[in-house]
Amino acid sequence: MFAVPKPLARLVPLAFAAILGGCWISAEPLVTDRNAATVPFEGTYASSDGDDETVSILAAPSGKGYNFNQGDESVEVHFIAIGNGWYVLQMIDPVKEPQDIDLGPDLTGKRVPTGLANYQLLGLSGDVIRIFKTECTEDVAALSGVEKDRNACVIEDLASLRAAARVLATSIVEGRTDPEVQELRPLGP
């Protein structure tokens, strides 16, 4: 098993921190153009994170990916549909080349690409998007194809990712878990 890298959340704006801060990862992307879903929520949104910058989710120029944009930052993401307004959002480590980091005494040195994919659960209710921070709960960690590594669930395949998403979505709906959430509300008419 590989070691989970230090949290990346301090390297990016708040909306991206919500995406990067999850506890479900895989050694390589499980969602590709072949199995990704198109989504009914392209557009520009205001975020509940308190930042004045808007968030946009727009189809990437090629393939089934989407660009998730906030301010000057942009990352390509993919989605899979789980059903009943639930989706899994996948983002791959945005660092493609080694970078020098100097963000204070606790975070300096070289940042190298990990190639890891990170997953969040997304719920669509009307035109409001809720991005839930994924948690490595006992129910999720007990699934076949999921292994707990420190505080993260390492997910081995797409079927296990779908199963984990269904477990977490059910737990949220039933009120058994209350993960951190970022809410996106559409701008404009």
Rank of each mutant, 00 (worst) to 15 (best):
G123I: 01
A15V: 05
A141I: 05
E73T: 15
S62W: 07
P189G: 11
D106F: 14
I131D: 01
S160P: 04
R185N: 09
L103A: 11
V140I: 15
D72N: 12
V12G: 03
V4P: 06
K96W: 02
A15H: 03
D178I: 07
D72M: 13
K6A: 15
T32V: 01
L107I: 11
P179G: 04
E76Y: 01
V55G: 08
V140A: 02
N35G: 05
R185S: 15
T134D: 02
L20C: 03
A3H: 12
D72Y: 09
L168E: 15
K64T: 14
V55I: 15
L107C: 08
D127K: 14
F68C: 02
R130V: 03
K148I: 03
V173Q: 12
L107V: 14
D157F: 03
M1A: 14
L187P: 01
A17N: 02
Q99P: 02
T137S: 15
A59P: 15
T137G: 09
V31E: 00
A36S: 13
I80Q: 00
Q70V: 13
Y119Q: 07
C23Q: 11
P94L: 12
I155D: 08
K110A: 10
I57W: 07
G83A: 04
C23P: 00
K110L: 12
L161W: 01
P7W: 07
T170K: 08
W24E: 04
G104Y: 03
L89Q: 02
P179F: 10
A27P: 01
V167D: 01
Y45K: 06
I155N: 07
G85A: 08
R10K: 11
S171K: 08
F79V: 01
Q70C: 13
A3T: 15
Q99S: 11
D49C: 13
G115S: 07
A3S: 15
Q99T: 12
V181N: 00
S62V: 13
D72C: 02
R10T: 09
E147V: 14
D102I: 04
Y87K: 03
E174T: 09
E156W: 03
E53V: 05
V12C: 07
G83R: 06
I57S: 04
P29T: 08
A141K: 09
E73R: 08
Y45V: 04
L20P: 00
T44P: 00
Q182A: 06
R34I: 10
T170N: 10
